[in-house]
Design a protein around this nucleic acid. Structure first.
Length: 252
DNA sequence: GTTGAGCGTT
C-alpha cells in the first residue's frame, strides 16, 4: 500500500484534505506519508504530477481521517523543513470534498486554533517573496495540460468575461500585442530586434566578404531598408499579407 | 541536470 493516488481516492466520504506546498520536486507521497501519519491517521497522500513528464508539481495533498488531526498536522508540519525545503501545510480549498470545508466548518476552527501558533514570520516572508518574483518564474512545472480540463467547467460560469475567448487565447493575444510593442520600441532605438537582426545577407554569408559586405551592408541597412519600406514596391504583397485582419477585429 | 506560484487523481 505504498501507492496512494495510483488507485484513485479510497474514500472521500469522511476525509479532510490538506494541501502541502513548497515541497521539493523529488518528494514523493511515500516520503510525506510517515511525516503526516505521525500526527494523525492519513487516509491517502496524493501528489499531482505532470501528464507528459510525470514529474511532481511541487505540492501534495494529504487526506486525513479526522479534522482535528488535520489541523494539528497543519500547525505542526506547516513550516517544517522537508528535504531541505520549508513546506507549507494548509487545508485544501478546492477538491472533491472541499464543499464541506468551504462551508466554514473546518476553516473556522483552524483560524481559531491558529491564534496560539506563531504565524507572523511566515506570511511576511511569503508576501515578500511573491512581491519580488510575481511575473517571473513560470517554469515548466506550471504548464497547462492538467489545468485546462480542470478549471474549464468551474471557471466558466465564474468568469463570464471571456464568453468566447478562452484564457489561452487571451494570453496568446496579449503576447502578440506585447511582441508588437517591443518590436516597435526596439526599432525606434536603432536595432535590437532578433528578427531584423537576422539579415539574410549577414546571416547567410558572414565571412564571405567581410569588408565589402560590411560596408555594403551598413549602407544598405540604413538606406535601402527605409527605401524599400517607403517605396512599397509590392502593394500586392502587402495586400495579400492582410496586415490588419485582427486589427479590425480587435480593438487594441 | 535545471524550475518554485499554487489547489488533486482511477
Amino acid at each position: 500500500m505504498s501507492h496512494f493516488g495510483r488507485a484513485g481516492p479510497p474514500d472521500i466520504k469522511d476525509t479532510y484534505s490538506l494541501l502541502v506546498l513548497n515541497i521539493t520536486f523529488r518528494t514523493s507521497a511515500d516520503d510525506l506519508f510517515p511525516l503526516f501519519d505521525k500526527y494523525g491517521k492519513v487516509v491517502d497522500v496524493f501528489i499531482p504530477r505532470d501528464r507528459r513528464t510525470g514529474d511532481s508539481r511541487g505540492f501534495a495533498f494529504v487526506r486525513y481521517k479526522y479534522a482535528d488531526e488535520a489541523q494539528k498536522a497543519v500547525e505542526r508540519l506547516d513550516g517544517k523543513v522537508v528535504d531541505g525545503r520549508e513546506i507549507m501545510v494548509q487545508f485544501a480549498k478546492y477538491g472533491p470534498n472541499a464543499e464541506r470545508i468551504s462551508k466554514g466548518r473546518i476553516l473556522e476552527p483552524v483560524e481559531k486554533l491558529g491564534r496560539s501558533r506563531s504565524r507572523s514570520p511566515r506570511p511576511r516572508y511569503r508576501d515578500e517573496y511573491r512581491d519580488k518574483s510575481r511575473r517571473r518564474s513560470r517554469s515548466r512545472s506550471r504548464d497547462r495540460s492538467s489545468r485546462d480540463y480542470r478549471g474549464r467547467d468551474r471557471d466558466y460560469h465564474h468568469r463570464s468575461r471571456n464568453r468566447s475567448l478562452s484564457p489561452d487565447y487571451r494570453k496568446d493575444r496579449e503576447r502578440s500585442r506585447y511582441d508588437d510593442a517591443r518590436r516597435s520600441r526596439s526599432r525606434s532605438r536603432g536595432s535590437a530586434s532578433p528578427r531584423q537582426s537576422l539579415s539574410p545577407r549577414r546571416s547567410l554569408s558572414p565571412k564571405k566578404s567581410p569588408t565589402r559586405d560590411r560596408s555594403s551592408d551598413a549602407r544598405d541597412l540604413k538606406e535601402r531598408s527605409p527605401v524599400v519600406r517607403s517605396v512599397s514596391p509590392r502593394p500586392r504583397a502587402a495586400d495579400s499579407r492582410t496586415p490588419s485582419p485582427r486589427n479590425s477585429d480587435v480593438e487594441e
